[in-house]
Design a protein around this nucleic acid. Structure first.
Length: 157
DNA sequence: CCAGGCTTGGAGG
DNA sequence: CCTCCAAGCCTGG
């Protein structure tokens, strides 16, 4: 399989994905769409349905540098939950500022859920637009936490 | 080569 | 409560 790029919708935004098999090279939010497919799990995720993003890999997590460790720590944050820049920094052994800059340069948002990393005092930042971060967290609160609660009560199926 | 970025906790006014 | 600062990484200019 060759490397392909495609996009899907998330609210008013398009999500462009460059990927091959289960390895994701790039994800970015844009106002315009593209022709081409995206991985099934990302499609489900963007549609607000339960999705298993752990079945995908990101190039961002390959290697042993501080930033790749940060990206792996961020991937471990469960859907519907958040961690602060400082918490991630402590896990990896660096300072919050470094986590912030790693998030700003995250090549694969969603696969590496940088929107789940928030400031101690508020939301923190997100590019290209903070409203995406809010919408993603909102959607996850709804989709992931509700699904987990239902599972616990055994009221689904 | 160096500035600056999705932060934070502490010091001091 | 507020401002100021250092700490640490790394890409883009």
């Amino acid at each position: 399989m060759a490397i392909v790029t495609g996009s899907c919708r998330f609210g008013l935004w398009y999500v462009h994905v460059t990927w091959q098999d289960n390895l994701v090279y790039r994800v970015r939010f844009a106002r315009e769409g593209l022709d081409g497919p995206v991985p099934g799990e990302i499609l489900r995720y963007c549609a607000g349905r339960p999705a298993d993003l752990s079945s995908l890999e990101s190039v961002a997590t390959e290697g042993e540098s501080t930033s790749t460790k940060i990206y792996r720590a961020v991937r471990a944050i469960p859907c519907g939950e958040t961690a602060t820049y400082g918490e991630i920094a402590r896990i990896v052994g660096t300072v919050p500022r470094v986590v912030g800059s790693a998030m700003a340069r995250n090549p694969t948002p969603i696969v590496v859920p940088c929107h789940r990393v928030v400031a101690k005092t508020g939301l923190g930042g997100f590019s290209p637009d903070l409203e995406i971060k809010e919408a993603l967290l909102d959607m996850e609160r709804h989709v992931c936490l509700d699904a987990a609660h239902q599972e616990m009560r055994g009221i689904n199926r």
